[in-house]
Design a protein around this nucleic acid. Sequence first.
DNA 1: GAGCACTGC
Length: 701
Amino acid sequence: MSMQFWKPGTVAPGSSLDRATESEGALLQSAPVSTAFVGLQEQRERLPIFRYKRQLLYTVEKYGVTIVVAETGSGKTTQLPQYLFEAGWAAKGHVIACTQPRRVAATSVATRVAQEVGSILGDEVGYTIRFEDVSDKQRTRIKYMTDGMLFRETMVDPLLSRYSVIMVCTVPPESSLRADDNKVDEAHERSLYTDLLLGVLKKIRRKRPSLRLIISSATLDASTFLHYFSSSPPQPFEATVLNIPGRMYPVEIAYLSEPTEDYVRKAVQTVWDLHLKGNRDGSGDVLVFLTGREEIERALYEISELLPTLPNSAPRLNVVPLHAGLSTSDQLQVFQTSERGSRKVVISTNIAEASVTIDGIKFVIDCGFIRVHNPVTSLSSLVTQPISFSSAVQRAGRAGRTAPGVCYRLYTVDSLSQLSKSTAPEVTRVDLTTPILQLKGLGIDDLMKFEWVSPPPAENVLRALETLVAAGMLNRDDARLTEVGAKVAEVPVDIGVARMLWGSKEFKCGEEILTIAAMVAVQDVFVIPDGAAGAMAELERRKFTAEEGDHLTLLNAYNAFIRYGKSSKWCQTHALSFRAMSRAVSIRAQLKKYMTRFGLPTESCEGDATRLRRCLVSGMWRNGAKWVADGTYRSVRGNVTLHVHPNSVMFTRKPRSGWVVFHEMEETKKTQIRVLTEIEPDWLLEYGHKYLDRHTGEVKT
DNA sequence: GAGCACTGC
């Protein structure tokens, strides 16, 4: 094996990151609206924003909307709100809000800014995320929050009248996951709530033009936002773009001269060649992007096969996997600095593209593919597809964080032009049932007139509307909220779970159904590791098993957790995730407040499992399935073949009645259902009869 | 007898 796989001359010229950024810059300049670039290319100060105070003040005062394109390390999220504060934007009781797409980003940035300002966290500078409000209604002037939280606040205060300036960060700030904390780095794809919030903010500015918006944008999104905020304005307002570069070293890009059939093998070869023929001192670690656990394990195996042939003179090779399925302690291995004279090779899923930053990476090997989760309606799927151009740029950038680097792309230059520009925003890909119910709850009745930053496919909107009508949340004739729909819109759960909560009044099981609602909202409650430890964990888990199925098993686990004092030690010995269980406790408490507010009793069913199961069906009847002789199930909707997830207590058991309801469905190689409970078929008809065709059993909506 | 990109209210 040798470097001959790389076509000479394809390296470097015309393919560097700098070049890519240049063309993106041109994209911005062609925008039709007044565009003010602040060229800071020559500035390498840590906090360049302070140097341009005057400029920034000018843009914020003159324009209603300022779009800031600032790269990693410019300090915009910490410095800009402070500057706005100094400039008087928090006078007369007003608040400067700064939204983040991630919880950790909101808390860590707030903590840092409070320190810089010399305030106690929660006093002058605070934050608000779900379950945690570290802010003071009177005193807090700069408030960091998740975008979902601000979106929710519009339900209470439709004009967001407390705020003078809202800075929406569409990309989380720089910070990295290290041994001592669990911080998350930038992700470049716009989140669902970012888009919903921006849509609502544009509407609010129509009624309250004094509200200033600062949109902190990734380069590729800037022109989208510029068009969005300058098109069909209700009254003249202008947008401006500030361009603040950050710190990034050049990365050379190499491509395959011919496409490969097997990118896992090619990745292994590339690692090997690079290691033997590259700089021989072993300096510079390698990051390999593959799509999933299976591929990562194959690559590890193939490298381990090659290791005995490694010449004695060559530096040692330390290969570590990285994916979400690893335990925290295994994940931390990737952060250990490689010993002198040895090279670290991290073989990772997309988790290293944005969520995790590893220092010392000088070489990136990019297979060009990604496995994506694609939830539309209740069926989500996991498919492998080519990455987007912006992902390719992002992955390459992982090589240039501490020094100049090289990125080997396991595809040809030609195929680059076929990549989509960027990953479609979440709002265009997800099930819109809950988002649309929430928009309706905000009084946005005509969805055709709602100005989406990126409009979702019309069929997704229609499907969501139909689901909401079938669930009794919207009136069939005018698509307006029903009485129950208006209430459910306020509750942070999906509609099936909401129906279940409301149904609990009839079945007198509010106490238990609350717990079940909280437990299905958290994932990975049971920790089942590989190997012998996994077998032990499996035995522990069986202690919670309920005859009726997974919902009641979750209920048992929760009740035991409470009974044993919510102890983290107890969780460890009983194969439960303490983090997940604690989160369930918080969610349950929050949902209970809603139940109380809406006058729903939280009485116990006193061990009457039938009542509880009927209540499950009253909410989840759309997710009914029938057992067939080969051990699989057929969905009531669509007659799809369903496989039980191996984690289910129903995996090895045939339901006596032959029928179940399940909480979720996911398509991988097969369509799998998770969290199921045995039910009686009559119950399904009782709730679904209005919508089910009597002959085919299919939903008519 | 089998499988796990990532968030958020």
